[in-house]
Design a protein around this nucleic acid. Structure first.
Length: 369
DNA sequence: TACGCGTGGAT
DNA sequence: TATCCAAGCGT
């Protein structure tokens, strides 16, 4: 940082004045206690404000206090998080609630270092809570901070690399006010979300334009420097809709990994159907699936394709293409070898299901008519 | 360190 | 349609 003290103070003043006049009215800004701040920060990880707001409202209604959250059962917890994604956040949220209630006797630690010991709280979230709820002078370095300060100071470090966080934290720290770092951090987020946007920044409206090195050189769009990630890997699956309109088979996914503990129709991958991945599967998997459920689940079913196009669903790292298949489930079928449950239509809404399951169900309802 | 981990909006 | 990206964390 080669700015003079005078320039730093002027920047701080202009930046914070802009925030006072232009800050967004967001639900969690009506509170200053750590529970509300923490909940919002966890939900906002890699998730847009617009998406979070209804979840935040519903979640607080279901769990008004951290003690309520610590004491709830996992099914209730996941139902409240259903559709928000990155489901380990929900599990870590409850784990941290239990840590606060038991290890800390309900009293929040106030330093970033201590906060980072809680489940699901990393360097960004620790700094955000410490500064917003406890007025600690910590820089909250998130995607907005990367973009805003990379442009402002022409920092060329690759923000995709973990070690870059420290470079930005060190650059921002001298700019923080002694008190009110929480406002400074939130000003950074608001500026990044509304003015200093990735694709088409509104530099002419920027309150700190005169300090921005990228603006002065017309290089806004060159920042932040970020190496791009690989494309999602394609995976081909079959979804088995087994049952009738009143009830059907559902499976809970394993406790670790993708969509952990959420419920879906039984999903069978190409890899499940054959040991040699070099063999090419037929377009119609019906015969293979019938054989598979006979061997694996001890179920004697007549599996047929559901007419209509496949469902596609893209995750950060995977692209699923899912063909739908269906079969009637004969009365009094022995389900001892099926690792799941026969779920009545009336109970279906009790299960926490991922968005891809909602797509599958919709497609089945439409195409099976 | 690199990768696994969801979803929906914007372009 | 394809791609990027949004208040990241855990391992």
């Amino acid at each position: 940082m080669n700015w003079t003290t005078k320039k730093q103070q002027a920047f701080q003043r202009d930046f914070l004045n802009w925030y006072q006049q232009n800050q967004r009215d967001l639900p969690w800004r009506h509170f200053h206690d750590p529970y509300h701040i923490w909940l919002s920060e966890i939900m906002l990880q890699q998730t847009q404000v617009h998406t979070v707001i209804p979840y935040y409202q519903r979640f607080l209604k279901a769990f008004p206090t951290i003690a309520d959250l610590a004491a709830t059962d996992e099914a209730t917890l996941f139902k409240a998080w259903e559709g928000l994604g990155y489901y380990s956040r929900a599990r870590n949220l409850q784990r941290a609630a239990q840590q606060i209630c038991t290890d800390y006797q309900g009293v929040w630690p106030q330093t970033a270092t201590e906060l980072e010991k809680l489940a699901g709280i990393g360097p960004y979230t620790a700094a955000a809570i410490a500064s917003i709820a406890f007025d600690a002078p910590e820089p909250a370095v998130d995607g907005n901070a990367y973009r805003v300060f990379a442009r402002l100071l022409q920092i060329k470090a690759d923000v995709a690399q973990p070690k870059t966080r420290g470079i930005f934290a060190a650059a921002i720290r001298p700019l923080l006010p002694t008190t009110g770092a929480g406002d400074f951090n939130q000003a950074t987020m608001d500026l990044g979300a509304t003015i200093c946007t990735p694709k088409d920044p509104a530099c002419l409206l920027c309150p700190v334009q005169q300090y921005c090195q990228a603006y002065q050189t017309g290089t806004q769009l060159d920042y932040p420097v970020k190496t791009k990630k690989p494309k999602p890997k394609p995976v081909h699956l079959a979804a088995l809709v087994i049952g009738d309109p009143q009830q059907w088979l559902m499976q809970q996914r394993p406790g670790q990994g993708l969509l952990a503990n959420l419920w879906t129709y039984p999903l069978v991958s190409a890899a499940d159907l054959q040991s040699d991945e070099n063999d090419k599967l037929p377009a119609d998997w019906s015969a293979l699936l019938t054989q598979y459920v006979a061997q694996t689940y001890q179920l004697d079913l007549n599996i047929t394709p559901v007419k209509g196009r496949a469902v596609t669903h893209t995750f950060t790292h995977l692209k699923w293409t899912i063909d739908l298949y269906q079969a009637k489930l004969p009365a009094k079928t022995d389900l001892a070898f099926f690792p799941g449950q026969l779920v009545a239509a009336a109970d279906y809404d009790q299960l926490a299901v991922p968005t891809v399951q909602k797509k599958l169900q919709q497609r089945f309802l439409k195409d099976s008519k």
